[in-house]
Design a protein around this nucleic acid. Sequence first.
DNA 1: CAGGCCATTGTTTTT
DNA 2: CAATGGCCTG
Length: 798
Amino acid sequence: MFPDVETPSPLLQHLNPEQRAAVTLPNEHALILAGAGSGKTRVLTTRIAWLLSTGQLSPGGVMAVTFTNKAAKEMMTRLSSMLPVNVRGMWIGTFHGLCNRFLRAHWKLANLPQSFQILDTQDQLSAVKRVMKQFNVDEERFPAKETQWFIGGCKEDGLRPRDVQVRTEEDRRRVELYQLYEEQCAREGVVDFGELMLRSYELLRDNDAIRAHYQRRFRHILIDEFQDTNKLQYAWIKIFAFNPDGSSGAGNSIFAVGDDDQSIYAFRGARVGNMADFVREFQVRHQIKLEQNYRSYSNILDSANALISHNKGRLGKNLRTDQGPGEPVRVYEAPTDLAEAQWLLEEMRHLVRGDGPEGGTARREIAVLYRSNAQSRVIETALFNAGVPYRVYGGLRFFERAEIKHALAYLRLLENPNDDTSFLRVVNFPPRGIGARSIEQLQDAARAAGCSLHDAVSATTGKAGANLGAFVAKIDVLREQTQNLSLREIIELVLQHSGLIEQYRAERDGAERIENLEELASAAESFVMQEGFGRDAVALPVDELSQSPVSQGLDPDQPLLNEPAPDYVPPDAETGETLSPLAAFLTHAALEAGDNQASAGQDAVQLMTVHSAKGLEFDVVFVTGLEEGLFPSERSMSDLDGLEEERRLMYVAITRARKRLYLSHSQTRLLHGQTRYNVRSRFFDELPEHALKWLTPKNQSFGGSAFGFGAGYASTRSGGGGGGGWNADRFASPPVPAQKAEPSHGLKAGLQVFHTKFGEGTVLSIEGQGDDARAQVKFTRHGVKWLALAVAKLTPVT
DNA sequence: CAGGCCATTGTTTTT
DNA sequence: CAATGGCCTG
């Protein structure tokens, strides 16, 4: 039964001592502090494989939770390559995916309609707007976005409307809206993302039999990226181990893996404190640190370690590597954002040609990281003009595109006519003469009758009623017609008869949209193949705790899937009932937004925000725009927590690099149509000098924490030339550093000046020469700003 | 009812 | 600079 000490399992062979210790921990709660590049996913999957192969656990007894579908898929793929186990029947998935599976299985107890649909963020916002409109809430005083954020925040904290503390009149109003929104969702048979979590948590908390069942069933629960869990997710995990009264559950073990230094999602409710709470409340006796890094050379790691050591209250961890120092971290200062882009283009060319580490670097191994999406533009333009293939991450994802959302809305109406969100989305798209007026009337009728918009149509009269009637009839006919069709056929029929294809064919750039709609049909088809609909789907004994080891989970007739679907919902254990392929596909579309941009396969440079780079690694990494006010961002600099999160973000950025790391900043940058003068980021001052190589002279900086001011900006119009002024020559010669030469403008630090817009101020410092000259001025009324002397009208005050 | 024009406003992202 | 949203006219 247990591993033979003499011949350790081959699973453990390639693990270092700490990893092995983590994998083979006894069946108790444990916290693994896994540094960047320390083999975290490997430990997680090997742990599961080891438990299964030693017979300590059956596939049905494991639950593994991740944050992204990508991570869940990777875990399943790796696991199935280690062991011949059917991963589809195992509870491996995202928090939301698993909650969905749970609620599908217990929809009655959860008080949900059997085929409830899931609202994504867009849908949720329009649902909130609808509630607010219906109850005549002033959108000026209560922006819908804010209300949405409020509702989401409440759910994340596990609070129902009646649980929310009300202090002000505005609070009372918000809670009221929350309540009304809840009622609307219930009426329409839809749940939002937060609801998936909260509803399943409540069911586990309040239903003793259900809780006892799952506590017994999931002997081992493993959680990835634990530092990113929010309050509700923590409570959700806890309810599997403890009863609401605090007594221990069935003695299962929670295996949490995380890295407090990589916690970068506090802004959306993540609580790093969950790690410390976990240790305390679960009386964790096993804590293992994975500090051996297999990714980067030591100059890169030293930089990361030095930087992050400036944060307080860390759990404490230092990455180390057996690889040598490697190349120094290169630092570059550009005069403008354009020049910065030109410079990295030039560096990339060298890298790809073969001057880089170990000969030519593949473009896909080069990543350009930035703090905010807006920064990608200049870089994209430079790459595009130079004909360098690149790929930008972020932006609209497949299932979020308008045309796809429209098609899905039609499909959702087939499944659930009460889905008013979908009804409103397509009732007049393509245009069929149903305007705001008719819709308002319809909404009034629906409210009076207490029914859905769909059902209210029959009561309406007049010419508006005729159009509405035709729409509803079309939907109902489609529902009939698609009764016995395959999913692909359903979608094709809907695309034709809804008029979507026709509509886009008439539009100027509708070709791409039509392509996407065709892609939707293909996506549906491959989804059907994956989920095994149509074929005889094998109902796994998922609800029975099998005492036998791995072999029980094996099904020789079931081929192992290359890409297991993490949102798989097993058929009902009693009735064998499964979701219709359409309902399953709609759920899939809501839970997995899909890739953002295809064009994969080509060898392209990777552009992305630091946030989306988390979890990835590249041979060469450029971190750009390292300027005060940008990175760290302006909004985070006011409080310490915000600044520490920015530092962790920087830590994540640095640790993405395997072989070579570049850090760059620019003196000026065009942002919001204005030229901003930025000081280099304080993070440069927190890096070890020995690991750095300054490609441009390191000038005296007044940035950094010494003064503690943020970067101001000169409110000058950008020159009419539109940025064409900087060319290759400009950056080829390094920018002139601030000289002590006599300035021509007659200003110097300490001088009192007057500005037409900002009034009186004191010059703090001067930098640059000629047209580049700029002054940092502390204004009495407007704070510290940087002003371009060539443009700003500054006059000395006597 | 629909399309066009002007004013506003800008982190980070997954489910 | 750009995307988005509200308002106004044909």
